[in-house]
Design a protein around this nucleic acid. Structure first.
Lengths: 124, 124
DNA sequence: TCTGAAAATTCCAGGCT
DNA sequence: AGCCTGGAATTTTCAGA
């Protein structure tokens, strides 16, 4: 807050109050860490499209939510209802994780080779 | 830090030193905000697969990086080299953004209907 | 990793435009 | 409404062990 107040040229209490208001109305959802999972052993990342078999939509969604290797899951339009971000220690582990879904869903996996744009905010 | 020190039952200086070390070795890349862009007017989110036309790979990557509505871009294996996250104010604006790529790439768009798993950390 | 003191910051009250 | 000043409480930082 004090650093922010210096940057924007306002008093610290005023900046603090503005931030508190942004939290209150939900613009700021919270304060988080940007953690690099590679040094923790998660060497492989992938984006996986998941298409549940007929009648298995909710079951598959629950399985995704319960598997912590799926670190993000969006529900999208199109042939594949789910698009998930997966992090694993190895290709073998990736296979294990997806195998666990194989009787309930069809998956299409794209390994992440690199990142062109790191998560950022659009213009405000 | 003081709250953390209470949670883990260590002194504040020790916790502070551990966090500093995690930053130094790169496990903690930084401290960020979780901002909800909807109240800022970005009502529509989409995941877009982008396949540059022959010879246009680097041009397209640059165009993606320069368009702030693309808030994330991973380079992936498979038919479509790029997978981007797009936020826009409206479907019309989405069309405008993708139109700007149309002479250099083929795109496949999936609108995000909801989120099953919000970005989280895998088990540590 | 801790303790203890010094420095800095955050919080809170009140008042101003 | 929103911002500021000034003092109190808390936190962070810095030393030494």
């Amino acid at each position: 807050m004090s650093e922010l107040s210096r940057i924007v040229g306002m008093s610290a209490p005023s900046v603090s109050e503005r931030v508190r208001r942004l939290e209150a109305i939900g613009v700021i959802r919270g304060f988080t860490l940007d953690v690099d999972t590679r040094p923790l052993g998660y060497q492989v990342r992938a984006m996986v499209r998941i298409r549940p078999l007929p009648g298995k939509l909710h079951l598959v969604e629950k399985l995704i939510q319960e598997r912590p290797e799926f670190i993000e899951c969006d529900k999208i339009t199109g042939d594949d209802p789910f698009l998930v971000r997966l992090v694993v220690h190895s290709i073998e582990e990736m296979d294990d994780v997806l195998e666990a879904l194989s009787e309930h869903a069809v998956t299409s996996t794209a390994v992440i080779k690199g990142t062109s744009v790191k998560r950022r905010l659009p213009p405000l």
